[in-house]
């Protein structure tokens, strides 16, 4: 059993390797489309052509593209994310320095989305086709449609500028000042959470409605089981399978959306790091950051899979 489980884990890891390679290759190719030349940027305004050429050579930028990518991938596989073209500093250090702020908002946003989205979904499902249901569903569609940055600005103008309850910008390191970090992360996380709340509420509602109309719920009622047990024990337990999938997707989406949110709230997380590096065509930095984010997504998906196999006896392990 335990052995089987480890094999299952290992197998899932191996399955994800191509995903990592694909993601970084795509990023690498896209960066080539960005105008500009890092070597010229480093050399400065008054550099000669030879100067630039020398810098390009020292950075390895004169090699064929596939070779540049190959070297990067080889190093990354060994845990070395190379150095920034511009600052020359190790990318890994920079990513690790900025990651906590990004993760703080993303994880907080996920918690908010689950804590608010689940009761809303349950409420809408148990009151299906009533005014309340239509209200929740309506707000949910709105939540999906509203752009994050726009909502972020509105939240800032109301709760930060208006009431002064939250800081407008910036972040605190969560390792030093836990509550301060949460306080700073609250607005950006709330911004990030709206889409997730809406998605979780909507999906949970439809999944729960399906479960509650199922044959086995009719059996439960025929047994004389009280309604609260039918809803909270059997209903939620079965709908949790869908919920898990949705939570995984929502988290992936949130990690991506941190790029825009960090820009609005001037947070120096990995999102803003990627944006700045992309503008300067500093591909090791972009790729390094994306690489780490993809790893996080993969780990998250693994955790979801684990939960899934725990919750659903029909999932075969191994």
């Amino acid at each position: 059993m335990q052995n089987q489980f480890l094999r299952f884990l290992l197998w899932r890891m191996v399955q994800f390797l191509p995903v990592v390679a694909m993601a970084t290759l795509t990023i690498f190719s896209l960066i080539q489309l960005v105008p500009g030349d890092p070597a010229a940027t480093i050399a400065g305004e008054y550099a000669t052509a030879e100067n630039i050429e020398a810098i390009r050579h020292s950075l390895g930028l004169d090699r064929p593209l596939w070779e540049q990518y190959g070297i990067w991938l080889w190093n990354a596989a060994q845990g070395d994310l190379s150095n920034s073209l511009l600052s020359g500093l190790p990318v890994m250090d920079e990513v690790l320095r900025r990651l906590p702020s990004t993760l703080t908002i993303a994880v907080l946003a996920l918690c908010i989305a689950v804590i608010v989205g689940v009761p809303l979904g349950v409420l809408a499902a148990t009151r299906a086709d009533t005014m309340l249901d239509r209200l929740v569903t309506g707000i949910a569609s709105l939540g999906v449609a509203v752009p994050n940055f726009w909502l972020g600005m509105i939240l800032v103008s109301i709760f930060a500028l208006g009431f002064g309850w939250f800081p407008t910008t910036g972040a605190r390191p969560i390792s030093e000042d836990f509550w301060g970090a949460l306080h700073h992360a609250a607005l950006p996380a709330a911004t990030l959470a709206t889409g997730g709340i809406a998605e979780i509420a909507r999906q949970l509602r439809s999944s729960l409605i399906e479960v509650l109309q199922s044959q086995y719920v009719r059996t439960l009622r025929a047994k004389g089981l009280p309604n609260y047990l039918i809803l909270w024990k059997h209903g939620l337990r079965n709908a949790a399978l869908t919920l898990l999938t949705v939570i995984g997707l929502v988290f992936n989406h949130m990690l991506g959306a941190t790029v825009a949110t960090e820009a609005v709230f001037a947070i120096s997380g990995t999102g803003s790091m990627i944006v700045n590096a992309a503008i300067n065509k500093d591909f090791p930095v972009v790729q390094g950051a994306v690489f780490v984010l993809v790893l996080i997504v993969i780990v998250m998906n693994l955790i979801i899979d684990l939960f899934y196999s725990l919750l659903d006896p029909r999932v075969k392990k191994g």
Binding site: S214, Q215, A222, K223, P226, H234, N238, D312, P313, R314
Partner: peptide, 25 residues
């Protein structure tokens, strides 16, 4: 009614494949 349901009067259904909750033993 719920007190009598399952206790005084029980019912079994046509579809044994879907009439039991799949995630409980």
């Amino acid at each position: 009614w719920r007190k009598r349901r399952g206790r005084r009067i029980g019912m079994i259904f046509q579809e044994p494949m879907t009439a039991l909750d799949p995630v409980f033993t």
